[in-house]
Nucleic acid binder design. Structure first.
Lengths: 216, 216
DNA sequence: AGTAAGTGACTTCTGGGTAAGTTACCATGG
DNA sequence: CCATGGTAACTTACCCAGAAGTCACTTACT
């Protein structure tokens, strides 16, 4: 033994699963703020109050840590969008309710959205495949709604539907990002704002949408 | 002298201003693809067919090179948006014409948009101030148009206008990014698509917009 | 000859990743 | 109730590739 008592090694009584959740949450925040490429694991470890090797112990690599964050984000976001789609709403109502559900899901962890859309995420096949899987499922739901809208306007061009879906996703992005930049706003006030803006653009809705808790 | 004739040093007959433009153009492309944080100047130099010290000679640092790209992008984009605003169009027409002008401006250098919105750009005060300056001017123009739209709907909330502007900017972003991802599309086909989508969402326009060359 | 354009070969430092060890918890057997 | 060893949680101190940044030098044009 060397100078017993001076070393700070040794368990702190935190079990692995809890510590992993903790690290993913911190890392997600840092990834969201600086992007994958701009993030150093030293900084993450510092923020999390632990040492770098522990991260490697649990996640294997920087990419592995990002993959964990991506899985966390992807699962939540896909779940929300697919569940909301099953409500069977259409048009403006569908849009507003989906946004409201997103706000609810992102309220505790706003970093999820940024991580999912990080343009600097690693370009490896593993990450790409993982991201693609979630993106496809979300895109499929989005395209379905968009195609219906375009069809009503007499447009069945698949490229138009693709572009329109991109627009729609970015509208989400704008509102979520705006929300992150205005931390004073609650989920409720964001949803109210969404309804006002939607009304200003498309005209007011006939019936109030069934906005409620995240899980009905 | 050491082994005269084997060295590859010496001018290649390219004047500094031209070489600078060249480097900015290449660097812009690389920054756009990998983000500032993910880009190495060695790679840029390689792509440009020159050596790294020349970049440092002309731009001082990696940040300086990025600043040059940002200036280039910011000037062009602000000029487009302010000039288009002066046309005095409103509503749907204004939106479509602005987008068309953006497509025209970005056709030769699509990287400008990505560089301007790079989330990994250096967080130094200099860069932040520079970016802010351009962003403010663009936002101001956007907010002006948006406020009018909202006012017509009886909404004068400044926060609503701010959020709506963010949405509007991201709609741009979506279409430009979609375009970058679909290199087969020309500016003309993008504008046509924009008009179709705008019509599907807001209803067809009464009068055709005056879409023309970048400079009238 | 003077200067602008240009480079090879360095130094330095950051950040991903690792080896080897330290400490606390927890089961057992006495 | 206490020693004792096994394991899981943790750290310090390091390696090393690659990228930022620099220096001394060379070549071509005028």
């Amino acid at each position: 033994m060397v100078k017993a008592g001076t070393s700070k090694a040794g368990t702190k009584g935190v079990a692995r699963p809890e510590r992993e959740r903790q690290i993913v949450d911190i890392a997600g925040r840092v990834f969201a703020e600086h992007g994958y490429a701009g993030t150093s694991l030293t900084a993450v470890a510092e923020q999390a109050g632990i040492s770098k090797p522990l991260i490697y112990n649990y996640f294997g690599s920087k990419e592995g840590l990002f993959a964990a964050c991506l899985t966390c984000a992807g699962e939540v976001l896909v779940e929300v969008i697919e569940r909301t789609a099953r409500l069977g709403l259409v048009g403006q109502q569908r849009a507003v309710v989906t946004l409201d559900q997103f706000y609810a899901a992102l309220e505790p962890r706003p970093w999820m959205w940024r991580v999912f859309r990080d343009p600097t995420m690693p370009a490896t096949p593993e990450i790409a495949a993982q991201h693609d899987q979630y993106a496809r499922r979300m895109h499929a739901v989005g395209v379905e709604g968009v195609r219906e809208l375009l069809h009503l306007a007499g447009n069945d061009d698949p490229l138009d539907a693709s572009a329109m879906t991109a627009v729609w996703v970015n509208v989400f992005d704008a509102l979520v990002t705006w929300w992150i930049d205005h931390p004073g706003e609650s989920r409720a006030s964001m949803t109210a704002r969404t309804i006002r803006l939607s009304g200003a653009v498309f005209g007011p809705m006939e019936t109030a949408p069934p906005v409620g808790p995240a899980f009905d």
